[in-house]
Design a protein around this nucleic acid. Sequence first.
DNA 1: ATGAAAGCGCTAACAA
DNA 2: TTGTTAGCGCTTTCAT
Lengths: 341, 341
Amino acid sequence: MGKQRPGAGPTLEEVAALAGVGRGTVSRVVNNVAGVKESTRRAVQRAIAELEYVPNLAARSLAGRRTDAIALVMTEPDWRKFAEPFFSETIRSVGDALTDTTLQLLLTQVRTNGERKRFVEYARGGRVDGVLLMSVHAEDPLPDMLADAGVPTVMLGRRSGDESITYVDADNAGGARSAVTHLLNSGRSTIATITGPLDMYVAQCRLRGYRAALDRAGLDAQPFWVAEGDFTEQSGRTAMAELIAREPGIDAVFAASDSMAAGALDALRAAGRRVPEDVAVIGFDDFLLAQRTDPTLTTVRQPLQEIGRTMVRLLLEEMEDSGVAWRHVILRTELVLRGSA
Amino acid sequence: MGKQRPGAGPTLEEVAALAGVGRGTVSRVVNNVAGVKESTRRAVQRAIAELEYVPNLAARSLAGRRTDAIALVMTEPDWRKFAEPFFSETIRSVGDALTDTTLQLLLTQVRTNGERKRFVEYARGGRVDGVLLMSVHAEDPLPDMLADAGVPTVMLGRRSGDESITYVDADNAGGARSAVTHLLNSGRSTIATITGPLDMYVAQCRLRGYRAALDRAGLDAQPFWVAEGDFTEQSGRTAMAELIAREPGIDAVFAASDSMAAGALDALRAAGRRVPEDVAVIGFDDFLLAQRTDPTLTTVRQPLQEIGRTMVRLLLEEMEDSGVAWRHVILRTELVLRGSA
DNA sequence: ATGAAAGCGCTAACAA
DNA sequence: TTGTTAGCGCTTTCAT
């Protein structure tokens, strides 16, 4: 049945003995440090293979260096959201960005305060070299707890306009503005919006962009053109139904996520509206559409692949020389026309 | 900007000095070991608070005991599946089962062989006390690698009928049988099935159950009544379209996941079939429907909450006294009638 | 009830 | 190029 407990395996010392060298040499071989005669290296490797030696990671990180692990944290109290494509896509892009490294990616869900506390102890305890945060709500104290503990931290998105932690974000206001401007240019004038949860800065920004575009066109955004969702498809359906009830003359909708856009589309069709003839719909990319049969929705596309890469890069830099100032990176979005707007 | 690196915090020794006690005593207080005078305990706690002491987890696990962390691994090469509700539900149920413990749950995605290797080193290196595996394909060597390394391991589902690793599974064959029997009892006779990927034992079992029910009724399962999907909604749509083309007379469908059932429903409606009047549909619960507006599909329900609890319980036991024989637990399923069958 | 001391297995600085 | 050694911060006997 294998060994008793992990940690019951052979040690560096036993390998050294078998290979007839000192422990230092074995350590050098294991860590690929230059300056070991090729023949000795070979002998050590043979001993390692023979004993099926695996370094004890606790000892390694205690002795000084890296942990070789980083955590990607989902601070989302609503478990249903874990199934949103935005999460799986983000996880994937971060995983991809890590393929060339030896870093182990650990995902963690933080829903309750108990889990928050447990995770902070885990991170402060030095079990990870750095932390990536996604989907952070405005009032979440986790980023500051981590920063105060000196744990290198990078967020995907920000909690407010005045953020003192390194983050990577998409140009949400700009993306929303370009979407709505596009709708205006196509001759639409009664343009509703379905926002994300307004306790999230990302949702506020997209709403701001929507308003800015209308403003610039000399139009007043009517309060009853705005309905709040929570980024899920279901909430898009509900919000759209409400909007139609309030203002039957709507001829365009900007949804702050494309899950919500898909929901809105459902609701519009259920109400007998033709899309895009009667109503044009634009969503903000959260990658749902890539998985759907009907990829006709126009979307504001976030460069998620690049967001993942950038987060990892910033985190590695912060791990390298911690204490440096935080940095903010805003990535451009792109309007992808696919026929429904 | 906080401390330099994690691990730069105060040590046990400094706490001991400040509290005027020995290191052993501080250790006892931190670990809630009985046999410390109440006044001393208080003094130590004050010192801990004062210095904001957090134990170094690497040192702790090196010095002997637990790691206080377990990993939940998704061995799924197809990243799209991460968005399936089955995963988020499983994660949630395991997380819930862990609330009363001090164990940190780490999620890990293992898609490539590189990631597999990296994770095995992580686990063998003693960074987790145990591993939970979900969605394991038949040919995946990961479970054996972990077992050989002596890492306590529990799987959700099994890779074959002859599994030598502890697992928890639903009664897949039985659930499928009861579903199809129900359809037969309702007077249906041309019953198709959409299977999961047949390289997964779970899919084979559900197919076997389907066949068994037809057999028992004296019916022959026609080969062209069977179409293979991959558990996703999209694959359900495709498979259903194919089935209709092959056999227009289908009056019932058993889908091996309810994501696929939902897709099948779509395809049926698109083809002008009325559900359940013309065709009855039953899915195997993967929890998609809980999130949908139209919860009318009849499903075979797996007790996922209990599956999560059971996996955690078995893992804890295995961590306790490792080396014990493996155990298999099969949980009963339940047919939940909701109107479409 | 508490202090002292011996490691846990490794890395890194220092010698040789 | 390689061996030796001093810790890393904690748990855990063993005395006291």
